[in-house]
């Protein structure tokens, strides 16, 4: 099989790498770029643990071929917030008990950020609907839903500003 040379932007940095035609974006992010925040949970796009932003849209990296991000911009959880300044979504997960084992957390952060970028003032029902593709086995979603609503409230009232990479 012929390898493809792909050029893309990863968390703000330009990258050029050779990938196998069947290589998944998740593998490139985790194995080749050592950005291990992106997680494997199901391998078929059902659990959302591998979510990343591609050109600002949330995509599931376990069912996206790496070759398909040629020329595009990818942001992983590592590109959201920083240690000095967590993104308001991350801050809200911290405050509202949105994290237990932490394994779904990167995907949840990526999806929550995407939701608020799309819809700054979601209702609880809209949050629950949008997040249906992100599975959590620990929290029962209570803390997660509270966190997204709280981040939305803070951002739309100007008390907090999203932190992009």
């Amino acid at each position: 099989m012929n390898k493809h040379l792909i050029k893309f932007v990863l968390n703000g940095e330009p990258r050029e790498i050779l990938v196998e035609p069947n290589e998944l974006l998740m593998n490139v992010v985790r194995e080749r770029e050592s950005l291990t925040g992106t997680k494997y949970g199901c391998g078929i796009g059902e659990c959302g643990a591998c979510a990343v932003h591609v050109d600002g849209q949330p995509l599931l990296s376990c069912i996206v071929l790496a070759a398909d991000v040629d020329g595009r911009e990818v942001v992983t959880v590592e590109g959201i917030g920083s240690y000095g300044q967590l993104d308001p979504v991350q801050e809200a997960f911290l405050d509202e008990g949105g994290v237990q084992c932490g394994y779904c957390t990167p995907g949840m952060v990526v999806m929550s950020r995407a939701l608020l970028n799309e819809n700054p003032n979601p209702t609880e029902l809209e949050v629950r609907h949008y997040m249906r593709g992100s599975l959590c086995r620990c929290t029962g979603y209570s803390g997660i839903v509270r966190a997204v609503l709280s981040a939305a409230e803070k951002e739309s009232s100007g008390k907090a500003v999203p932190v992009a990479s």
Partner: peptide
């Protein structure tokens, strides 16, 4: 709030 969370929230677990 949990001391574990900042690293988990940044994908640094």
């Amino acid at each position: 709030v949990r001391v574990e969370d900042p690293r988990l929230l940044r994908g640094r677990g």
